[in-house]
Amino acid sequence: MSKTFIAEVIGTAILVLFGCGAAVLMGAHIGMLGIALAFGLSIVAAAYGIGPISGAHLNPAVSLGVFVAGRMSGAELALYVLAQVVGAVVGAAVVYAIASGQAGYDIAVNGLAQNGYGAGYLGEYSLTSALIFEAVMTFVFVTVILGVTQEGSPGAMAGLAIGLTLTGIHLVGINVTGVSVNPARSFGPALFVGGKAMADLWIFILAPLAGGAVAGLVHRMGVTRAA
């Protein structure tokens, strides 16, 4: 279990380093398409790098979906979530340490790729839009994960399928919420940014967890599970 914990810490840190790092350090140069690809590629890297150890959940909503689907115990769920939160904080800390070395960088102004919604945030979408997007897209994401990792699926392609799905989700929704679909990914940057990022954090915990839980329930019922 210690290897699993460490693997999830490393994998979630990779997710934040690639995705949030791309947004903070290179966003002006690579745009939203580049950021979307960075998030997707982080999943591919982690899936093949640490997947054989922990399954590379990297996301409390994914782990919750796996739990509800009946594939892991409550104790395992708690271990995974703790590791993912730690990994996200570590990843955000590294991104912040690098970004703060640039002349003129101010976390209060430039941010740390924190998620958000409403006035002053990217496309200025409403709270309702943010909740719907995060819940529905997390449901889609976890459904894909449960599908490609079930018995009989082409396991060698799972990491690529999951990474491409996350890329697609970012292509649809960066302008809406910055895309969370992952409470840990949201917590890491928000912890350092504080203020509105922390005040909005409940959205990026509640909606993804709801979407992940429903995906797990649907899978357990056999709707998205191979016969």
Rank of each mutant, 00 (worst) to 15 (best):
S2A: 15
K3M: 15
I6A: 15
G11A: 13
T12F: 04
T12N: 07
L17W: 05
F18N: 03
A23E: 06
M26R: 13
A28P: 06
H29L: 10
I30N: 04
G31I: 14
M32G: 10
G34K: 11
G34A: 13
A36W: 01
L37D: 01
S42R: 01
I43V: 12
I43Y: 04
V44R: 00
A45T: 12
A46Q: 07
Y48S: 05
Y48Q: 05
I50Q: 02
G51I: 10
G51M: 09
G55T: 09
P60D: 02
A61T: 08
A61H: 03
V62S: 00
S63L: 11
M72P: 01
L77Q: 06
L77W: 12
A78L: 15
L79M: 13
L79T: 15
Y80I: 12
Y80C: 06
Y80T: 09
V81N: 00
V81M: 15
L82M: 14
L82N: 06
A83Q: 01
V85W: 00
G87D: 02
V89M: 11
G91V: 05
G91T: 05
A93H: 02
V94M: 12
V94Y: 01
V95E: 06
V95G: 05
A97N: 10
A97L: 15
A103H: 15
D106R: 11
D106G: 07
N110K: 06
A113Q: 05
A113T: 05
Y117F: 15
Y117H: 11
G118W: 04
G118Q: 06
A119P: 13
G120C: 08
G120L: 07
Y121D: 02
Y121F: 15
Y121R: 04
S129N: 13
A130G: 07
A130Y: 03
I132N: 08
A135E: 09
A135D: 09
M137T: 14
T138S: 10
T138P: 12
V140L: 14
V144Y: 05
V144I: 13
I145L: 13
I145T: 14
T149V: 13
T149G: 03
E151T: 11
P154H: 14
A156V: 14
A156L: 14
M157A: 15
L160S: 07
L160M: 15
A161D: 09
A161P: 04
I162T: 10
I162R: 03
T165G: 08
I169P: 04
L171H: 07
V172F: 12
G173S: 09
I174R: 02
G178S: 12
V179R: 01
N182E: 09
P183M: 12
A184G: 09
A184F: 11
A184H: 09
R185V: 07
S186C: 09
S186W: 00
F187K: 00
G188H: 00
A190P: 00
F192A: 01
G194Y: 01
G195R: 00
A197M: 00
A199Q: 12
I203C: 12
F204A: 00
A207V: 14
P208L: 05
L209T: 10
A213N: 05
A215K: 01
G216R: 04
G216C: 09
G216H: 08
H219D: 09
M221D: 06
T224D: 08
R225D: 03
R225I: 09
A227Q: 09
